[in-house]
């Protein structure tokens, strides 16, 4: 990996981040030029009260001054105050990160089973297994993730009573240690499976087409000519070469992990980033939305950078691009 390549990628990521910050300011201060309006509109508030609200959310001065103030504030790591309860936005978001990483992390691991299935489907292209795998991934792609969640909730939690309906743990439960952990896992199982179902198709399709790309390569012919068994040709010669697109997809998806599953978390009342987003939309709590958007974008930008660098490491041909 050349230093120039590295520099270009890093600068690209920084410029994207700068773009996001600017868009973020533009959306919340220019398109919607007074985010506090939802707080005082229709209420009988004295002008002084409105003025102090505006001051609290840094709405005084020209747009340009506000923009500079926003940048300075961001550099200090300050995301402003939430409209609900006037808490620090960074604290509100910070609380929500761990439940999301836990839930979406587990479901991503489950969904990655799709990679193996995709390799097998691609290896036996056109077989019954391939057809059913491809159809399955198309079907799950067509279903909104939260709708899978509604059906699963109705069937497994309400009708059969196998899983709790919502939340992180039983309300009022005083359980600690192992039993608390088991309770949380029990609560997480259904949303995690639902999310995995929603993601598995994508991994499968990417793995399958990466495998199909390698099928026509000469080294597979050679491996067969050497007399290797079919499974061995696949495992030792085809899969390692089909790994590239899958690795970069996983890295990019990791950025989306932080964004979580907005609708699914909200459906299961899972207290993560997703539920926070949907609550902030309902409020509307603009400072929280602004902070969330910045965080989610930064995560994806970082993940893309990592994916690019990883790719050029794994495939020397890409380094010179």
């Amino acid at each position: 990996m050349s230093a120039r390549f590295l520099l270009r990628k890093v600068l690209g990521a920084i410029s994207t981040l700068a773009f996001v910050v600017t868009v973020n300011f533009f959306l919340f201060r220019v398109v919607n030029d007074d985010p506090t309006a939802t707080m005082y509109r229709g209420r009988n508030m004295k002008p002084e009260q409105i003025a102090s609200l505006r001051q609290k959310f840094n709405l005084d001065g020209s747009k340009w001054e506000q923009y500079l103030a926003y940048l300075r504030q961001l550099l200090r790591g300050d995301l402003g105050l939430s409209m609900k309860g006037s808490r620090e936005v960074s604290a509100v978001i910070g609380e929500a990160i761990w439940p999301t990483l836990l839930l979406v992390g587990c479901s991503t691991l489950l969904a990655m089973l799709g990679i193996t299935l995709g390799y097998r489907a691609g290896w036996r292209r056109g077989s019954g297994f391939d057809t059913s795998a491809t159809s399955f991934s198309m079907l799950t792609y067509a279903m909104p993730d939260f709708w899978i969640g509604m059906v699963a909730l109705g069937l497994f939690s309400v009708k059969l009573g196998w899983f709790p309906v919502s939340g992180l743990e039983d309300p009022g439960s005083a359980a600690t240690g192992i039993s608390q952990l088991l309770d949380q896992l029990h609560h997480m199982a259904l949303p995690a499976i639902v999310l995995a179902l929603a993601y598995v198709g994508e991994y499968m399709i990417v793995a399958r087409s990466a495998m199909i790309e390698t099928l026509s390569e000469d080294y597979l012919q050679l491996a067969r000519a050497k007399g290797l068994r079919d499974a061995e040709v696949r495992r030792r010669h085809a899969v390692p070469n089909a790994r590239l697109p899958v690795v970069s997809l996983s890295a990019i998806n990791f950025g989306f992990v932080v964004g979580g599953a907005i609708a699914v978390e909200s459906l299961f009342s899972w207290p993560g980033i997703g539920q926070l987003t949907s609550l902030a939309v309902k409020g509307p709590d603009f400072p929280v939305l602004q902070g969330l958007f910045l965080l989610l974008s930064a995560a994806v930008i970082l993940a893309n950078l990592v994916a690019d660098l990883l790719y050029s490491r794994l495939d020397p041909r890409a380094g010179g691009r």
Binding site: G12, S15, T16, F19, V20, V23, L27, F28, V31, N32, G255, F256, G259, I262, T277, A280, V281, P284, F286, L289, Q290, L292, F293, L296, S297, A299, V300, I301, N304
Partner: peptide, 23 residues
């Protein structure tokens, strides 16, 4: 293409949600 790349990288759904809430 620089602008296109910026838009490509921004996570699609959060962007749509934020934009829809503001508008």
């Amino acid at each position: 293409m620089r602008i296109t790349d910026w838009f490509l990288v921004i996570p699609f759904l959060p962007f749509a949600i934020v934009l829809a809430s503001v508008l």
